[in-house]
């Protein structure tokens, strides 16, 4: 048994405190032989501090493509030769998407827009869309609309948006290699306002952008400092036409090590499988992650790519005896 796993057991499992950056790095450097024990510890931490429930969420793109920002992984930036065209979802289709999501048993529905930050038109669409969903569907509404002003934060609270997603994407030291049109600090500022507004903070990122293992540890520590309610973990799905379109996908074992490391950094957060898990982990790896620290999933399709059918994930959860967190449990 390695020292770091002993230390992690005492600090994270017994006390519920997250690991510091140096320890996270040691976790990320554990050899493959230690992976089963690491995943078991991360799972024990999740079961003790979060419980067996899994939070299920659906997401939809309200405004796709044509974004003025240059996040190098993103097929929705208007600055790259990506085949993704700009398109808006109408309100009846938005409500239908929320209904389909609720029908899976999901408690969360997140409305996403590919923008630097919302303009007047987007905020008006949001107000109408959220009202229509709340009228017709029993589900919690979250949003992800880029960087916000204080006024927009207040407006979203007023609409009844209960959680706001804004990913830091990667650690502070690597961010300028991935995005040049805005800064990590600008993202942090939006997160600060969201936190103060009382909305739940959802903040994660993407692994496999070319960051080093040290930078992965740095990122986990920075997220832990932010202490978000939820951390969505994506793995790069290299998109044609983007600057990162030719990058390799994250190795499955490295992905599992990262899942466990993020859990040991943040024992009490909702750690969600987001995009890229299908290509990085496949079916078997998806199961391993759910037994290695993950306690939330996005079901169905993503924003511009497709996921596996919701039924496949729901069957897996049933098989693992992990109940889907019900809507009443989220209040």
């Amino acid at each position: 048994m390695s020292d770091i796993l002993d230390r992690a057991r005492a600090r994270v499992l017994d006390e519920g405190s997250g690991l510091a950056e140096a320890d996270i790095l040691e976790i990320l450097r554990l050899p493959d032989e230690a992976l089963p024990e690491l995943l078991q510890l991360a799972h024990d931490v999740r079961m003790k501090w979060c419980g067996p429930e899994v939070e299920v969420e659906g997401i939809v793109s309200l405004k796709t493509g044509g974004c003025p920002e240059d996040c190098h992984f993103c097929s929705q930036s208007g600055l790259f030769a990506s085949p993704v065209r700009s398109v808006w979802l109408d309100i009846p289709s938005l409500v239908e998407a929320a209904k389909q999501t609720a029908a899976t048993g999901a408690s969360e529905f997140c409305i996403v827009a590919a923008v630097r930050g919302p303009d007047k038109r987007l905020m008006e669409q949001m107000r109408a869309g959220v009202a229509a969903i709340r009228e017709a569907v029993d589900i919690q509404v979250a949003a992800s609309l880029g960087m916000l002003s204080q006024e927009q934060v207040d407006d979203l609270v007023d609409m009844g948006v209960h959680r706001y997603n804004h990913n830091l994407e990667t650690c502070r030291s690597y961010f300028p290699n991935v995005v040049t049109t805005h800064s990590w600090e600008e993202r942090w500022e939006t997160l600060r306002m969201v936190r103060e507004s009382g909305m739940e903070v959802c903040c994660g990122g993407i692994l496999g952008l070319g960051e080093t293992v040290e930078q992965r540890a740095e990122f986990a520590a920075q997220l832990a400092e932010l202490d978000p309610h939820e951390v969505p973990l994506n793995f790069l799905n290299p998109r044609p036409g983007t600057p990162l379109g030719d990058r390799p996908v994250v190795d499955g074992k490295d992905a599992l090590r990262a899942i466990a490391a993020f859990r040991l950094a943040m024992p009490k957060t909702i750690l969600r499988y987001a995009g890229g898990r299908e290509i990085t982990l496949g079916d078997l790896g998806t199961r391993d992650g759910l037994l290695g620290g993950i306690n939330a999933v996005i079901v169905g399709n993503y924003l511009t790519t497709l996921g596996r059918p919701a039924t496949a994930d729901l069957e897996l959860l049933a098989d693992l005896k992990m109940p889907v967190k019900s809507l009443s449990a989220t209040f």
């Binding site: 997401i59 939809v60 289709s93 998407a97 511009t304």
Partner: peptide, 25 residues
Amino acid sequence: RALEPPRFCPECRRRMKVQVVPTGW
């Protein structure tokens, strides 16, 4: 394409307007 919607029209190769929703596209 198993995990992506189509992007180009197979008949004329124009880029299509694609909307992905949780259960389809």
